[in-house]
Design a protein around this nucleic acid. Structure first.
Lengths: 192, 192
DNA sequence: ATCATTCTACCTACTAGTAGGTAGAATGTC
DNA sequence: GACATTCTACCTACTAGTAGGTAGAATGAT
């Protein structure tokens, strides 16, 4: 097995474990037995657990960048909905929560390097959403009284909260509902 | 030192640790050294870590019940604001998050007994908020188009999200802002 | 083209430390 | 004396991380 596939397989597995059980809730052993390699091999690619944690967050940073780039010239309303759908897909049928929700909860028990990268990821998403709301207001699609950055934050709170609760109560409908609520109170045209 | 005070001191310390570092992020040793007793003494009061976790959640269940009872005959709008203020006070100056936010994130890595009690606590808060929104609508204080239980959930998502982000970015203003946003989009009278 | 060397990617075997948990003695309190 | 409480001393299981080795591919020198 080549390095590239093993390395990314490790990150992929870490990802699943972190989004299910949290940073403290998974071990190198869990990964090793999941993909049938030895623990030391993980340390070869990621010397410290912190390194793996950072790789996990940076991956989501990259994925989000790619996602925003792929998102063509849709209307602001469509982009808002697309964001919610993308976010909802992270739920993985009520088995996982979002990276932001996880790092935000475990924040104080994480190494400094992970904390910094977490801040960057959150800021990146907030930034993109702030610009979206701003543009939506200017182009008359979104309600004028909204404060762009507060609305962006509000969206993150709601979407990440809905994923968590959807998982606990095994109610995927909570995510869809959160989306509808957000669209309703951000967009001008009615859609309830 | 009597049992009662030691026992409640253990829970109090666990509480602080859990709300800062998460369920996986604290140990019996942390508590022992924090209040200068031996680890085994904690096991005397709480044989398993799960027992301590349940005590923690049940305490917040009781506290919430007491809080709702103490809350006199204020207007629905005032009760809504009081809820947000109470919730915001859990932030402890951006050092902690809320019990709901914590158990929701760590959910899958917690023992079954804690999971059940977590569900109950969340359901309890959701229930109270649902009734508040319902009453607020009937009495003409809240916007009629709101769905009571969805709005209740929305409130929990936003408040618990704001506590988490306030902690990460050391921005207590996020909590106040979340409160204002909720009041604005739930209550009829303007207040921005 | 051959051979020595270096590097990559993994391995086995181990360390020190910490986790939750237990047994039983010591201490206090009624 | 009886019982509750806290202690010392320990256990097993597991954690992140390290030491040292190996097969084989890549590189370089002649």
């Amino acid at each position: 097995m080549q390095t590239r596939s093993t390395k990314s397989l490790i990150v992929k597995t870490a990802e699943e474990l972190i989004l299910s059980y949290g940073y403290q809730g998974f071990s190198y052993n869990d990964i090793a037995s999941a993909i049938n390699i030895r623990k030391a091999s993980i340390h070869y690619h990621f010397p410290k657990k912190e390194d793996l944690g950072i790789a996990f967050i940076r991956k989501y940073s990259r994925l989000f960048s790619l996602w925003t780039k792929r998102l063509g010239t849709a209307s602001n309303r469509e982009r808002l909905i697309a964001f919610c759908r993308m976010y909802g897909s992270l739920s993985n049928n009520c088995t996982r929560i979002c990276p932001i929700g996880m790092v935000a909860a475990d924040y104080h028990s994480m190494p400094a390097g992970i904390q910094e990268h977490s801040q960057e990821l959150i800021a990146q998403v907030e930034q993109w959403l702030t610009e979206l709301v701003d543009k939506g207001k200017k182009e008359g699609e979104f309600r004028e009284y909204l404060r762009s950055s507060d609305t962006a934050r509000h969206m993150i709170y709601v979407m990440s909260g809905s994923l968590k609760m959807a998982r606990i109560f095994k109610e995927p409908g909570r995510i869809k509902r959160a989306e509808k609520d957000l669209v309703f109170h951000i967009c001008k045209e009615k859609e309830q």
